[in-house]
């Protein structure tokens, strides 16, 4: 399992318990053609992690120009890694539309679109999945029971997306930020948390989807 932070916010490290977020990473080193592979880390749950790194405004502008020029930049970098055959690579990107997300989509074998159970999300559905692009799955995030609309949105999405919508919506759960603040993994921090349960379900669902791809 390799997690790749491909978001200039450079904050995925915190969610994996790597504090403070590393200054050097794939983008900061890669931009200058340096040894970005050396910035990879492994956390206590033995998840390998490749940070984004810190870039100033000027650096970001140059990096984005590079990405625009070379649509397969990320794909080539990841291809260069010497990973065991059964490694799943998870790439975190900023929300669409974004060059980072485009890079990730080009590199990936499977896309996961994260939706909110609201009307705006439903309206934004068409942004996903350019024709002929990689397979696309969907998951609902931050579901709240008090929102009466969520059941209707879910029903609509299910109707439109069928089996491509994950059976486990991820609940909005204060345990998630609490665990992050305590610098502990969610499972460890709150074993009975609904979000932890949802994420586990989502994980195995994605695993099955990946297995079907091969």
């Amino acid at each position: 399992m390799l997690a790749v932070d491909f978001d200039p916010q450079n904050s995925l490290a915190l969610k994996l318990g790597i504090v403070p977020a590393p200054a050097e990473g794939l983008a900061s080193r890669g931009l200058l053609g340096g040894d970005w592979q050396a910035t990879a880390r492994t956390n206590s749950d033995r998840i390998q992690f490749l940070p984004f790194g810190r870039l100033d405004r000027d650096g970001l502008r140059r990096f984005e120009a590079l990405l625009a020029e070379q649509p397969r930049w990320l794909a080539q970098r990841l291809g260069a890694l010497d990973l065991p055959a059964d490694t799943a690579v998870l790439i975190d990107t900023p929300r669409l539309p974004s060059v980072y997300a485009d890079q990730a989509i080009t590199a990936a074998g499977l896309q996961l679109a994260i939706l909110r159970a609201d009307a705006a999300s439903y309206a934004a559905l068409r942004m996903f999945g350019a024709p002929g692009s990689t397979p696309l799955l969907y998951v609902l995030n931050k579901v709240e029971a008090t929102h009466r609309l969520q059941n209707d949105v879910r029903a609509l999405l299910r109707q439109d997306l069928g089996e491509r919508l994950a059976p486990y919506p991820v609940h909005r759960d204060e345990s998630v930020p609490e665990a992050e603040a305590a610098n502990r993994s969610l499972i460890d921090y709150a074993v009975h948390s609904q979000a932890a349960y949802d994420l586990q379900g989502l994980g195995s669902w994605l695993h099955a989807a990946l297995a079907r791809l091969d």
């Binding site: 909005r172 345990s175 609490e178 709150a190 009975h192 948390s193 609904q194």
Partner: peptide, 10 residues
């Protein structure tokens, strides 16, 4: 189970 402090338990 939705707790008053925002935590949600399975």
């Amino acid at each position: 189970l939705y707790l008053p402090d925002g935590r949600v338990a399975r």
